[in-house]
Amino acid sequence: MPAFLRHPLAAFTLRRIGYSLIVLLGVMVVVFLMLQLVPGDPVRIALGTRYTEEAYNALRAASGLDRPPVERFFSYIGNALTGDLGVSFRSGQPVTVMLLDRLPASLSLGITAVVVALLIAIPAGTWAAMREGRVTDAIVRVTSQFGVSIPDFWLGVLLILVFSANLGLLPSSGYVSLADDPLGWVRSVILPAATAALVAAAILTRYVRAAVLDVVSTGHVRTARSKGLAAPVVLRRHVLRNATLPILTITGIQMATIMSGLIVVEAVFAWPGLGRLVLDAVNGRDYPVIQGAILFIAGLFLLINFLVDLLSALVDPRIRVG
């Protein structure tokens, strides 16, 4: 075995890659079976009023549905591993191309939402934990509980009514590419990112507070305080440093959750991302796009979790041998 593979971090990375590939293969199997379990003929359903015998036969041949199930299964797995996710029933475009076209919009929205959520959650959760039992702690806990209870679509509509319809400060829908017009992108992303971020911030605040409280109750923090160290020094050197790992873990989970749950937000704000593509595909019975999008989003989820695991192993070496 090469020497670098014996390094704990390299072995840990290979194990996580192996786990991710196994999960991804399982997702491929489930996604393939989806089309087999659809009641009726998916091609006929997808064509709807556009049905003709010629169009039906051509679409079945293009999608491979004219072949035996076992042959289709292995063909689907092989094609998916090479990046070929089939062809859209409705547009005739390759599904992979459609997903990659929509990915930048979703990534820009998801990353912005996570950054905003962290900018809210880390100060609020830390502030509440350092003042446990006080009025400020109660305010943060009640506010975060209220935020967790708010549906995304209701919050999005409320923000549109306030900042777009009434105040006219921000656009209510649409997307501007960051590369083409940075200022236009900022204006277009504020409301959808706030909608996704505020709910995520409420969840993250509770986890940050719990993580900081766990660290504050440890002996080394009490010792640091007894030595007369200033509160900001104790917070920076002893509390936040040791609370980084659980905060990092829940941040990765929330980012994956936001990326996989943008359907509602993108529908409310007419944001042309993966979520909107999935919604349009469901309405249009475009099963190859639905299959490809689910597999693609699952891959993003696994990638985010892998990166979080890798960062966690870098922060805490004990994880590498776990």
Rank of each mutant, 00 (worst) to 15 (best):
L9T: 15
V97A: 08
T13I: 15
G261L: 05
V216N: 14
M130F: 14
V239M: 06
D180T: 08
N166W: 15
P94W: 02
G133Y: 06
I247W: 01
V142P: 10
I190H: 13
R237L: 15
R16I: 05
F32A: 06
P69G: 11
Q93C: 05
L310V: 09
I122C: 08
V282N: 01
A256I: 04
A193D: 01
E71S: 01
G322E: 13
A165W: 12
G48C: 04
L311V: 11
P232H: 00
N57D: 12
W154T: 05
G273W: 01
A129P: 01
L85E: 10
V157F: 14
I294N: 03
R236C: 11
P232F: 01
T126H: 10
A197L: 07
V148A: 05
L303F: 06
E132R: 12
G92E: 00
V199W: 04
M98L: 14
I250K: 09
R225T: 06
E54D: 12
V135E: 10
D286A: 01
W127T: 15
W185C: 08
S260M: 11
R50M: 10
Y175R: 08
V115R: 11
S177Q: 03
G219M: 05
V221C: 02
I258Q: 09
Y19I: 09
R187A: 01
A211R: 05
V87W: 00
R131Y: 12
S226D: 10
L295A: 07
A267Y: 15
T52P: 03
A128D: 06
L314S: 11
Y56R: 03
V282S: 07
T13E: 14
R225K: 08
P171C: 04
W271R: 02
L310C: 04
A62T: 02
L99F: 02
R237P: 09
I297C: 01
R276L: 15
I203K: 15
L118K: 09
L119N: 13
L191K: 13
I22H: 11
V162R: 15
R241K: 09
I17G: 15
D66K: 09
L204A: 04
P123E: 02
I294G: 07
R141I: 15
G18N: 06
Y207D: 00
P246N: 09
L235C: 10
R225P: 12
Y207F: 12
I263K: 07
S217N: 14
R206W: 09
M1G: 12
Q254P: 10
S88M: 13
G147R: 00
G83A: 08
R222C: 04
L81M: 00
A117C: 08
R15G: 10
L103N: 11
T112P: 13
L229W: 06
V278Q: 13
A230E: 09
V233S: 10
I139T: 10
I319N: 09
M98N: 03
F12H: 13
V135N: 14
S75Q: 05
P104W: 11
L155F: 02
P288S: 01
G261I: 01
G64I: 00
H238W: 08
A201F: 02
L118G: 11
V264R: 06
V265P: 03
F296R: 00
N283V: 12
I247V: 07
Q254S: 10
L118S: 08
S312H: 11
L170N: 04
V189K: 02
A62W: 00
V23F: 11
G184F: 01
G125N: 11
A61N: 14
L100P: 07
E132T: 06
A243I: 12
L65I: 06
T136N: 14
F89H: 02
S75P: 02
